[in-house]
Nucleic acid binder design. Structure first.
Lengths: 210, 210
DNA sequence: ACCTGAACACCGTTCAAGT
DNA sequence: ACCTGAACACCGTTCAAGT
């Protein structure tokens, strides 16, 4: 009786049925990745840090890959939300939306290194994680949409929007990824500015070509 | 006496002092990466496949990271050799050397997936592996050189060659890396053609801009 | 329904010992 | 000089058992 009341009124500090253990595990995993990288992620450490047995995780995720895929999928969702926000805030006749999108992408990678490393650094088979594939496609789809908008306004040449998007996506990803592990030969410019410059060149070249 | 003669005349099949074990270990590691990816690389398996104890490797490499760094470094050396060959064969007044270089880079990634995955997929700290850093810079340096050549011939705008090289390198890397794990949203074009198109746009945009 | 603990088959690395 | 074998401190995952 007393026990039941206690359970109902005040949340127990270490109750058996953890409740939101799933969210806790994801947050803890992000902490580990932030501190030591995706490669150092360990279910045993996640369990220990979450104050739970090392096998409790298997109640909420199929296996380690599923946990990693969830984090990657969350990352693409966050990136897409960022890109959506940029498109919404861009003035409707601005010619540089694509450049701002690229800068936002690179900035996202810098601001969320754990998510970004998991999104692109882990060798996940997307066929086995359909939600991850869906979120990744949706994020890239924002660039395709922005390109169609720009073409409609005549701010961009009339090439295949998906082709242009692939090039800009690969360029932006390349800068974000190489930059975040300081693999860019020289960093004369900050990565964001480099991405803006690159996307501008692609836009211009794509406007005169064909 | 007889034993010594045998050792001297015919190479023993399983002699104690292996001799070229170092090369054998590298080749075996490449086989494992080719079959199951960098993440599945295991010193124990390399040892077993090379017919040697699992700790024999420590006579030739500081640790596992040193073995991986050696493979990555070899990869950058091979890539540079490819790029050097392309530049040497390009007719001196050709305007498309940069596009051919990009295509060659993407083709190299496809033809040498084990090396490429190790070069860019493993989280190696280049400060701890100076030879790797040197080879990587040298490979990228070929692009800088080709850009200077193109500018000298007036086939390219007069922007900072290192800046242009960074953009082209990131673009080519992005296409090669995303393409090899089929993370490019659509593959309307083969990755080589996509890289050629992207580099052409950058060249053209960089010629009109500024 | 949710979690634990022991068990299994793996890891990288160290080190004394063998040849 | 080069390699082995046992040992150590780790892994992911399974499964019977507890609450």
């Amino acid at each position: 009786m007393l026990v039941l009341l206690a359970k109902a009124s005040t949340p127990q500090k270490r109750r058996y049925h953890h409740g939101d253990l799933e969210r806790t595990l994801v947050a803890t995993a992000l902490d580990v990745i932030h501190a030591e990288g995706v490669e150092a992620l360990t279910l045993r450490r996640v369990g220990a840090m979450a104050g739970v047995s090392r096998t409790a995780l298997y109640r909420h995720f199929d296996d380690k890959a599923a946990l990693v895929a969830r984090i990657a999928s969350d990352g693409f969702r966050l990136l897409r939300e960022t890109l959506v926000r940029v498109r919404a805030n861009a003035s409707p006749d601005a010619g540089d939306t694509l450049e701002v999108l690229a800068a936002a992408h690179v900035h996202f990678a810098r601001a969320n290194p754990s998510h970004y490393a998991t999104m692109f650094g882990s060798a996940l088979d997307r066929r086995k994680h359909p939600d991850l594939a869906r979120q990744a496609d949706a994020a890239c789809g924002e660039v395709v949409g922005a390109i169609r908008d720009a073409q409609r306004r005549g701010a961009l040449g009339s090439g295949d929007p998906e082709l242009i998007a692939e090039v800009m996506w690969a360029l932006t990803f390349g800068i974000a990824r190489l930059g975040s592990s300081s693999q860019l030969p020289r960093t004369a410019l900050p990565a964001e500015a480099l991405a803006v410059q690159g996307v501008r060149w692609v836009s211009d070249g794509c406007q005169m070509g064909v």
